[in-house]
């Protein structure tokens, strides 16, 4: 699985988007998440199971103060 165009080293069977957020400690609240180009809504983060070949994008929307 790839996260933001880099190899994701912690992939395992049953991994959800929320698991990735937790592993990466992505605590910033405004994230735009796409799997294979498809936008995923926040309410699906905990149930969306990622596959080994998925292309996951987690974009942080912050451009500074």
């Amino acid at each position: 699985m790839r996260l933001n165009d880099r190899e994701f080293e912690h992939w395992k069977e049953g991994l959800t988007i929320q698991d990735v957020i937790d592993i990466m400690r992505f605590v910033y609240p405004r994230l735009v998440i796409k799997v294979n180009g498809k936008l995923i809504k926040k309410e699906e983060y905990s149930s969306f199971v990622l596959q080994e070949n998925d292309d996951l994008k987690i974009y942080h929307l912050l451009a500074g103060g």
Partner: peptide
């Protein structure tokens, strides 16, 4: 001063501008 550009997330975390 960061008022011109703050690109850290876009670059370092999102890897959007490789």
């Amino acid at each position: 001063q960061h008022d011109e550009a703050w690109l850290i997330f876009m670059d370092m975390v999102n890897n959007q501008i490789p």
